[in-house]
């Protein structure tokens, strides 16, 4: 089945891409002006460059990021992927957000395509351990949680930093996978690069 991945350049969509890798034909990115969007990860400035390294074409659609309008923009982007790359399904990196997941499910349903969420409800620690094990090189680009100061920005999540993050997430009770925007990440290298 030909698939498109909703790709932000962060760790979750990169890992979702890895899981579906043999069937992925295109990356789909929403460039949101709203830095606090519940739907889309920001910043996404490296996505163009990443699509070249991954060797997959990119569909990038701009959105103002207003709550329901951004869903229409996402629908447009997916429609474009259906028309240009004949995709029959979309893959997302949704882990725990029912807000995000159900909205994407509705769009896929309206467009009569499959929706795949291979990281759905995954244990957050397990998720990060797998990513590190698979030798993804993931850099932290934004932090927003008690217990995470600015010194974390620019750090790569290697085994040592992962252990430190696990300890901090338990102490300060934040989501280690960054599902609530506590940590934003960017992929530098990994098994999806060709």
């Amino acid at each position: 089945m030909k698939l498109g991945v909703l790709f932000s350049g962060g760790k979750d969509s990169s890992y979702a891409l890895y899981k579906a890798r043999n069937e992925v034909k295109v990356l789909i990115t929403l460039d949101s002006k709203n830095k606090d969007s519940f739907m889309f990860h920001t910043p996404i400035d490296k996505v163009q460059e990443l699509s070249k390294k991954i060797n997959l074409p990119l569909i990038k659609v701009k959105t103002e990021g207003r709550k329901e309008e951004e869903l229409e923009d996402l629908k447009k982007a997916i429609k474009k992927a259906i028309n240009e790359y004949q995709i029959e399904g979309v893959v997302t990196g949704a882990v725990a957000s029912t807000y995000q997941a159900s909205r994407i499910q509705k769009i896929c349903d309206e467009l009569e395509i499959y929706c795949f969420n291979p990281l759905w409800l995954k244990n957050q620690e397990e998720l990060l351990r797998e990513i590190v094990e698979l030798k993804f090189k993931i850099k932290i680009v934004k932090v927003a949680a008690d217990g995470l100061d600015e010194s974390w920005i620019g750090k790569v999540i290697d085994k040592k930093n992962l252990e430190k993050l696990i300890v901090l997430s338990k102490k300060y009770r934040f989501s280690i996978s960054g599902e609530g925007g506590e940590i934003e990440t960017e992929i530098l290298d990994g098994p999806i690069f060709r």
Partner: peptide, 15 residues
């Protein structure tokens, strides 16, 4: 039907 759905519909239950 598709293996890629295992992690979404089976694993969260077996966990």
């Amino acid at each position: 039907e598709f293996e890629l759905h295992d992690d979404e519909f089976v694993k969260p239950v077996t966990d």
